[in-house]
């Protein structure tokens, strides 16, 4: 049952619309003036506690990594590179991924392609780096879980869907599963 074409016509303005149209517009404006519907996030005083499925910053679990290089190969922005590191004395150096956040587009393909789940997304989307060099992470920093700068002072909030107000901002503790 495919879609069908429906021919329509734009409503022709009648003289009465000069009155009803103006009144309707002003009444809708007054309605929202009296009872505004706003869900602005007062960042950084508040921050969104992101879902676990959010494609945020990426962290490496070095123990799980098998050095298969799939992540570096699939990266569309060439943000991921492999570096050879000698983990144990006397053993051959093994490749591990490092990431350059100057280039990363957060498509999450590296996380999805990793056969051992060594890479994972963090529910963080805002991290401050002081220089571009700093955004080129080395292996050690790639394993640290970065934290949003607003965590320290901000209040975590969540947005839940609502049929009347669209989105409603609630404290993260009340948000429930969303």
């Amino acid at each position: 049952m495919p879609g069908k074409v429906v021919e329509k016509q734009t409503p022709k303005p009648r003289f009465i619309n000069a009155i009803t149209g103006n009144l309707g517009a002003i009444l809708v404006g007054l309605k929202y003036f009296a009872n505004p519907n706003r869900f602005t996030l007062k960042y950084p005083y508040e921050y969104i506690e992101l879902r676990n499925t959010y494609r945020g910053f990426i962290v490496l679990d070095m123990k799980k990594c098998i050095g298969c290089m799939s992540c570096a190969r699939i990266c569309p922005a060439s943000a991921m590179k492999m570096v050879k590191v000698t983990v144990q004395e006397g053993k051959k150096p093994k490749p591990y991924p490092v990431i350059n956040y100057n280039r990363c587009i957060f498509c999450g393909m590296c996380v999805d392609v990793c056969p051992t789940e060594a890479l994972a997304h963090l529910p963080v989307h805002d991290v401050v780096y002081l220089s571009m060099d700093e955004m080129d992470l080395d292996l050690e920093r790639f394993q640290q879980k970065v934290e949003s700068p607003s965590v320290k002072e901000g209040v975590p909030v969540k947005y839940v869907f609502d049929p009347e107000k669209g989105l409603v901002k609630v404290p993260a503790s009340e948000g429930g599963e969303s």
Partner: peptide, 25 residues
Amino acid sequence: KYDVRIIEPYEAYDELDFEVPVYEE
């Protein structure tokens, strides 16, 4: 009356019921 969803339904569009509005003006 030109909409690819109708002329050449792709993905699941041939199983869905929807209208494509066309205006004359």
